[in-house]
Design a protein around this nucleic acid. Structure first.
Length: 294
DNA sequence: AGCTCTTCCTGAAAGC
DNA sequence: TGCTTTCAGGAAGAGC
């Protein structure tokens, strides 16, 4: 499940090989996850790649602007979201093609950029600057860049449960289920706590925990659970450092209590019931979800 | 307005 | 053994 650290790792890999390359041709398989496949196939050939960057969990491949592409509505960005099972790799076109590979871009150095996505939860779009700006306006600050004060202001004022907010890209961008759970464990905060019930100290601790967790994950090139690999096709190693995610029933590394799993905001949430004390049970929640004891 | 739930997709694993 | 059911989750959109 590519989240900020995995996308960052892929982007760094692509930055090493893509800038300056010309896209020679486009071949497509299934296209239901591509915003406008005809436009993509028509407009990409002949364009040169200027750079690669990350925006939240989006990968943005910027195309060099020719004279004709100078106007602001020109589609100068290839925006790619890996969804849950997306992978982008570059390598020789002679390498065997993995099943569910749906985009092939031939490059002028003889290599091929491929997009593979089993579940096709990913998204690909040839986008104009205005679309990238709209994404920026819609979403919150990047989880790695946001300061402690801004984090407390954005998150601490909301009535939603903290886990739901961490997953909401409009509140803060880049975090998914793995790093939300790992960060909450590190900060000793229960995933079902209301954000506006957290103390200033807890918000500071959570801000610190998020950034420390994300940076540690980037150092280990991300977490490979099912499908994630970097742009060279190699898995990350941060899954070895997971403390709660997918560890139901195992002993908490801090206190030894069994890790539990509950649903919060429609997502599996793993936590230590001793280190991360539950919110005071509200009658509404108690009546609906009996497993909220602890 | 602000929050939670449902939906899309495939394959692995559990259930019977 | 072999079938069916459940589950995983990012983010848009529906619903409350």
């Amino acid at each position: 499940m590519p989240e900020l650290p995995e996308v960052e790792t892929v982007v760094r890999g692509l930055q090493a090989v893509l800038p300056g390359r010309e896209i020679l041709s486009v071949r497509l398989g299934k296209t239901d996850f591509i915003d406008n496949p005809v436009l993509l196939a028509e407009r990409l050939p002949g364009r040169h790649i200027a750079g690669v960057s990350r925006y939240g969990k989006y990968i943005s491949i910027e195309l060099a602007r020719g004279a004709a592409a100078a106007n602001p509505d020109a589609p100068n960005f290839l925006a790619i979201h890996l969804g849950m099972t997306g992978r982008i790799t570059t390598g020789s076109p002679a390498e065997p093609v993995r099943p569910h590979t749906h985009v092939f871009l031939a490059l002028d150095d003889g290599n091929e950029l491929r997009y593979t996505d089993i579940r096709r939860f990913g998204k690909i779009r040839l986008a104009a600057q205005s679309w990238m700006d709209a994404l920026r306006a819609r979403w919150g600050e990047d989880a790695l860049e946001i300061g402690a004060a801004e984090f407390a202001r954005q998150i601490g004022s909301r009535g939603a449960r903290i886990k739901a907010l961490l997953l909401d890209q409009k509140a803060i961008r880049g975090i998914g289920n793995i790093y939300a759970d790992e960060s909450l464990w590190r900060a000793r905060i229960h995933p079902a706590r209301r954000a506006d019930h957290l103390s200033a100290t807890q918000l500071r601790a959570l801000h610190r925990a998020i950034q420390a967790t994300l940076l540690a994950a980037i150092r280990l090139r991300g977490s490979s659970f099912s499908d994630y690999v970097d742009s060279e096709g190699k898995p990350g190693a941060f899954q070895r450092m997971h403390r709660v995610y997918q560890k139901e029933g195992m002993a908490c590394r801090r206190c030894g209590h069994a890790i539990r799993r509950i649903q919060v905001a429609g997502r599996s949430s793993f936590f230590c019931p001793r280190c991360q004390p539950a919110p005071r049970v509200r009658k509404k929640i108690h009546a609906r979800k009996k497993h909220f004891r602890n």
